[in-house]
């Protein structure tokens, strides 16, 4: 009963929040809902509108539910997600589709071995870079994601992750191992059957550094190696991020690369101005193209309005140097 009351009151709060003057919320709102002594639930929703010369579409792109819990030495996290729940497209052709199939986005157990070591078993976000760790619309900076998270390394790993704190500053080393065909590959960017990776995360006064390297094998036996360097500096008024990758796929002689630089300026606690420049060389999956590689620069300018921490209203413009894909993106997302 308490659960239902809180759910209804939060939904009412969300509706009212759009019409009420801004104010701070209590720390109770964003914590999800408690189930029993050790479990919590929550979720998020994201809607998106895209407009370009070639395309006009409205979509409810994510609806997900979280269930997680903890006891003395164990953490449990699960996420069930329906992607592209509803799509209505006017251009290039008129279509309307819906999908109510939920897939397992994440499901894992973490065991705290001692003060310095943890081991995670299940399906989890690969601990590479910053964007990939918090990839959902309401929490990320822009509606679009940089290309690097789609083309360089597997977003999700089904296997084991061993995390070891190297020193008293709690700089971490992550070792990731997968040797199976994914718990549920629906939303993974690569359909993999092997993934071995290592990540070093260092926190310095100048910022946080993450350096990763790895190997993965896809179900069609394509093998790839990658390395990713990421840096983030968080200041009271801005956050600056660089992520870059090099990767080599066995079929291609070229080494592909990607780098983006992003600056988020906190105009105040509700408004954020974002500028991102991304440059990459990647491959084309199009079998009719002789030259499989292509290079691209994307400039993204965006403004995000967060009336509450768990609500984001975003607008952005993406300008492409090569592809005819310049577009406006708008989204509304929230977490509960």
């Amino acid at each position: 009963m308490r659960f239902c009351t809180k759910l209804v009151s939060n939904l009412l709060f969300l509706l009212l929040s759009l019409f009420l003057p801004l104010k701070s919320i209590s720390d109770d709102f964003s914590e999800g809902y408690k189930i029993g002594d050790n479990f919590y639930t929550g979720g998020y929703l994201s809607t998106e509108y895209e407009k370009s010369d070639e395309k006009e579409a409205f979509l409810v792109d994510d609806l997900a539910f979280l269930l997680y819990g903890e006891n003395d030495r164990w953490d449990f996290v699960s996420e069930f997600e329906a992607k592209n729940l509803y799509i209505k497209q006017n251009l290039p052709i008129k279509t309307e589709e819906s999908n109510l199939n939920f897939s397992i986005e994440r499901i894992y157990l973490t065991y705290y071995i001692d003060d310095y070591k943890t081991v995670t078993i299940g399906k989890f976000n690969s601990p590479v870079g910053f964007w990939n760790i918090i990839p959902i619309n309401v929490l990320r900076d822009t509606t679009s994601s940089p290309y690097i998270v789609e083309k360089s390394f597997p977003k999700l790993t089904s296997g084991i992750c061993y995390r070891y704190a190297l020193n008293e500053n709690f700089d971490f080393l992550y070792i990731t191992l997968q040797n199976n065909e994914d718990i549920d590959s629906s939303y993974n960017n690569f359909k993999i059957k092997k993934h071995y990776g290592i990540t070093l995360e260092l926190e310095k006064t100048s910022g946080i550094f993450k350096i990763s390297g790895g190997y993965f094998k896809q179900r069609d036996n394509k093998e790839s190696i990658y390395t990713v360097f990421a840096f983030r500096k968080i200041e009271p008024n801005y956050t600056f991020t660089i992520e870059s990758s090099l990767n080599k796929i066995d079929l291609y002689s070229t080494i592909f690369y990607d780098i983006y630089l992003q600056h988020v300026q906190n105009l105040n606690e509700h408004y954020y101005l974002i500028a991102r420049f991304e440059k990459f060389r990647t491959y084309k999956d199009d079998i009719f193209t002789v030259d499989k590689k292509f290079e691209e620069n994307i400039l993204t300018l965006g403004l995000t309005y967060r009336p509450y921490p768990n609500v984001a209203i975003k607008g952005e413009y993406n300008r492409y140097s090569m592809q005819n894909n310049d577009k406006w993106l708008f989204s509304f997302s929230f977490m509960f």
Partner: peptide
């Protein structure tokens, strides 16, 4: 700042 902390806990809610 308070809003940074609120956003931080929202991210950790996603991470369990």
């Amino acid at each position: 700042k308070r809003f940074e902390i609120e956003r931080y806990w929202l991210k950790t809610h996603y991470m369990g």
